[in-house]
Structure formats: structure tokens, C-alpha cells
Design a protein around this nucleic acid. Structure first.
Lengths: 202, 202
DNA sequence: CTGCAATTTTGCAGTCACTGCACAATCGGC
DNA sequence: GCCGATTGTGCAGTGACTGCAAAATTGCAG
């Protein structure tokens, strides 16, 4: 199965339980934020709903923010791998468009969780600072991947990091635009934004 | 004097004292972070060095991060005004290049404080998440200004926000590049980055 | 210069995120 | 079933941040 990479990589009982606990915490966090609001949720509640102790919460996530956002190292690696191995005739920017749009699309595996994520990350403006902080991780992972793809040493050229940063910023701008009641639909705006980047702007 | 806008706008004793306290807190925060590290500094220390109570600290800044970053509403307004009133024959992107580069340059008023800021914001990677969070404020202010300059209603078009977001992301990418030991000098890289944005990339 | 109203400062008590540490529980391999 | 290693948990503590009410300061009018 193609989903094996994301769900069952190393299949000891230990690994599986960790995965489940992490997922339960992420899910509990998302549900609670949806019921109340980000500020009104405590880490103790999240831990309780996930069925672990308050202390264990911090064995899985370094902060409350991280638990709500929930990006795993595996997801990051998957995105990086997808960027590193280019699709036939696809420019770096086109790859980034595909990958970043895929992060928002609830069409892949884990449909309900992804949909919930999207709903909350788009709907809770108070998470914006945490989200852009998380984007740094994504930027670093994707930059390293693009450097490998282009065969340049890390930091040797500004171009890979710049390309990744602009792509992420474009998506973020579309999200912000959406949250502020801006015109247009999200996916369509993202497409337009990438077209603008490719064409250059003034 | 041309510096009046930033230093003496409303010159009651009350206003002046508030300004001084704010500045003292920002300066104390920067100095302490430079002496130790961001994590090792407490808000109590900052307040003590600035000569105010621990409680008063939070009357001036909503968080420790904000005290270190120290962007004032007036600075934001000044940048916005500078973007709104276009210079002869300067494209929006060119205006943004000038304004954002000016934020990093210690050549304007308040030379020592600006230089200290620059040194710390470039040298303390643990501040990166806070910085990008702060960038949201800057993005919103500049977006609104650009919308006014272009004569479009807020949120009517994606373009203003996209332009601002890309410009900020470019500068941030250059800073990150610098911090990771990347090639080239900062100012030069920023120039190149803006040229790439204008020309389009793949 | 003097009292009055508005603003600002401060102390206090409290909540909550987060951490180190020591110990208990659990798991994987033998 | 046993042992080493990993993981879960309780406890105690630090520090960021908040609301509240009293005290100090400022601007102003008389």
C-alpha cells in the first residue's frame, strides 16, 4: 500500500502506540480548540481527553501551539522528499505549488483530521503567529531538499531559500487574505499568486 | 526638525515620560539579551534595569518578545505613510525594497539603538519565531497602505497583500540565509532577491 | 498654590505553560 | 520469565502573564 510510508513505517507495538498517542493528542487539541477557543484550552485538558498525564503531553509536543498545529517530522520528510525528486518537466516553483497546495487539501490520507486542521488553522486568527513560526521549520526542510535537488551545497546560493520562502509567503498571504474577508476562493488565489511569482511583479 | 515626527509629536510631560520608559525597557531588554541570551533573561530583570516595577513592564509590552523586538506603532505608521505616498517613478516593489532595507540600516535616527537591534535580531536565532510573528503586524500595516496608494478597497484584490508578503519574505529569507552562514553580504543579497522577484522565477 | 479628576504605577494573588528529576510501568529481545 | 532500554507519571519549581484595587503622579482649573 502507498500509505505505508506515513502510517506503519516501523511496526513495533511501541512505535505504533507512540503514533496513536501523538495523534490522539493532536486530535484532542483540535477538537477542544474548535469547541472553545485556542486561549481557553489548557494543556491539561488536552492531555486528559487524550488519556495521558499532563506531563506526558510535553513528551510529545514542546508547546500547546505545536500540539494544535501538529506537523510531524514524517510529514516534513515526505514533503521534502517530494520536492527533492522532481516530477518530469516540473520547475521548482511548480513543485512547491503542488506540495504546498497539497498541505491544505483534505484529499489525501487522514481526510477527517486534515479537514479539521484546515478548518481550525484558517478559522483561528490567534494561531497566526504560531503558524508562521512553524513555517520556519517547513522552509528549512524544503530549502535543504531543493538544494539537494539542484545539486548546490547548503547556503552556497540564495536562490533555493528564496524560492521556498516566496512560495510559502504566497500561500500565507492567500490565507491571510481569506481570513480578512478578501475576494476570491483560496485555491484559485493560490494559483494566481504562483502565476504572479513566475511572471514577476512590480 | 525632521526628527520631530518620531520623537516629540505630542510634547506633554506625560507623553514624554511614557516614551522614555518604553525606550528604556526596550534598551534594557536588548542589553540583557546581549549579555546573557533571550531565554536567560526574565521580565523582572528587564523591568528592574529600566527602573520600573515588574507589573509596569506589561503596561508597555504585551510579552517579553515584544519588548525585545520593540517595534512601536509610530514606526509602523511611518513606514506605512512612506509606502502610501509614492516617490516619483517608484514601483510598489521598489518602495518596499527601500522601506524594508531601511528597517535594517542603522543609518537613520537612533543610530545606537537601531544597531543594537540589528545585531540581536540577526544574532539570536531563538527569536526567529517571534520575529515572523511580528512581521504579520508589519504586513498588515503595509498592505493597508499599499491598498490606499493603489486606490483599491481593503481585500478587494489579492495583489497588494501578495506584493507586501513577498517583499517581507524576501528580506526574511536573506536574514535566514545569513544566519545559516550562507554566501554573500546581506544588503547585496536583498538587492538580488528583489531583482529576482521583479524578473520572475521558476 | 491647591485641590480635583484622570492617568499611570504598583503590589498582590492567581492561573497556566513548561521543565528537571526521580521513580514506576511497559516493552523488546533473550 | 528476566533484563536493559524506553516511556509514562507525579512532584516541585520557575517564570510569563492577568485582573484588581490601592497608591502615586500628572494636568488643569480655580
Amino acid at each position: 500500500m502507498s500509505t505505508d510510508q506515513l502510517t506503519d513505517e516501523a511496526c513495533g507495538l511501541r512505535e505504533r502506540k507512540k503514533r496513536e498517542t501523538r495523534r490522539a493528542l493532536n486530535l484532542a487539541a483540535l477538537d477542544l480548540v474548535e469547541e472553545k477557543s485556542y486561549a481557553a484550552v489548557t494543556t491539561e485538558e488536552i492531555a486528559a481527553r487524550a488519556g495521558v498525564s499532563a506531563r506526558t503531553f510535553f513528551n510529545y509536543f514542546p508547546s500547546k501551539e505545536a500540539a494544535v498545529i501538529g506537523t510531524t517530522a514524517e510529514e516534513l520528510e515526505a514533503y521534502a522528499a517530494s520536492l527533492e525528486a522532481p516530477v518530469e518537466g516540473e520547475s521548482p516553483l511548480a513543485s512547491l505549488r503542488r506540495i504546498l497546495a497539497g498541505m491544505l487539501a483534505p484529499t489525501s490520507v487522514d481526510r477527517d483530521l486534515r479537514a479539521k486542521r484546515r478548518r481550525i488553522l484558517l478559522g483561528e486568527p490567534s494561531l497566526a503567529p504560531a503558524l508562521v513560526g512553524n513555517n520556519i521549520r517547513i522552509e528549512n526542510a524544503l530549502t535543504a531538499a531543493l538544494e539537494r535537488r539542484l545539486g548546490v551545497l547548503p547556503g552556497a546560493s540564495l536562490e533555493p531559500r528564496l524560492t521556498v520562502a516566496l512560495a510559502i509567503a504566497a500561500v500565507r498571504a492567500c490565507i491571510e487574505h481569506q481570513q480578512n474577508g478578501g475576494a476570491g476562493r483560496l485555491e484559485r488565489n493560490i494559483d494566481q499568486a504562483f502565476d504572479r511569482i513566475a511572471a514577476g511583479l512590480s
